[in-house]
Amino acid sequence: AETTLHVATWLPPTSSQNSIVWPTWKQWVEKATEGRVEVVIENYTGDPKTIFDAVEDGVYDVGFSVNAYLPGRFKLASVAEIPGEITDAEVGSVALWHTYEKFFKADQEFRGLELLALFVHGPGQLNTNFPVKSLDDLKGKKMRIGGGLVNTLAERLEVTPVSAPAPKSYEMMQQGVVDGTFLPTSQQKTLRLSEVTTDLTLFPKGLYTTAFSIVMNPDTLESLSKKDRDAIMSVSGEKLSRLAGAAWGKEDQDGILEAKANGVKVIYLSEDDAIVKAMEKLEEGIDKAWIDSVSDRKVDAKAALAYFRKNVSELSQ
């Protein structure tokens, strides 16, 4: 190959990002460029939040990370993180990409980086070691949270928040340092939560999600021939966002199966349940909080939110 793209990745090898998303994209790129561009996937052992800088400055050519790891810098994509907005990961990811193309691009939150894809993980749910019959059951319980808009929700639920990265959940649950964690159901399998939780309570639209970005170094892209540049972009954007969202979403089903197999009590709530109604009431206004939080951006936030919602409902059909 004429050019090698070094991809920075993290998370365990079993996660769908590493078992599906990267290998598939590698195939796509190598095929589209007829082998002129080779993709090498490397494990990033530093803090995942530094991946954005590492890609911008050319330590790696491509990488992915969580937007909320850099609070204050990437605020726009959080539109997908508003509790109760998305139904599943693929839909949320594609809707987010469309909204980015139409509304967010102008603001240049990603200046210094070439954005290849935006995606979200499946709806975050309650993984607990106590049954959740009503929202009062959560009051004062120690819950691990990661960051982003879910922090606001945790505040409103009056839980005792214990902030820690997702991979710490297993240890903290097992030791009883926390009584539960907000995470998508995929983590019942990937992080082996099924071994340490007793109850998995599924809200129809989940409680939150997390936005991820896949980014590339612009100089690396610029250094390629126009043909190869176009080839790479043709297998990125919406196509890559959809791939990633679908892969992460599929994990959720595996997680639920794993939970059931390990004797975790899985509760599917429906729109009519009192607890779901109470949660919706609690979530009211978090969308407003997002709109306020991006007031310093050159974006019509209200229109963007409406467009995002329209996309979600259209894609869900």
Partner: peptide, 19 residues
Amino acid sequence: ELAERSLRRGEVSEYLKIP
């Protein structure tokens, strides 16, 4: 330089919102 860039972009800490 990295510090200045981070300040320019408004990166803050999660809870205390310290740049």
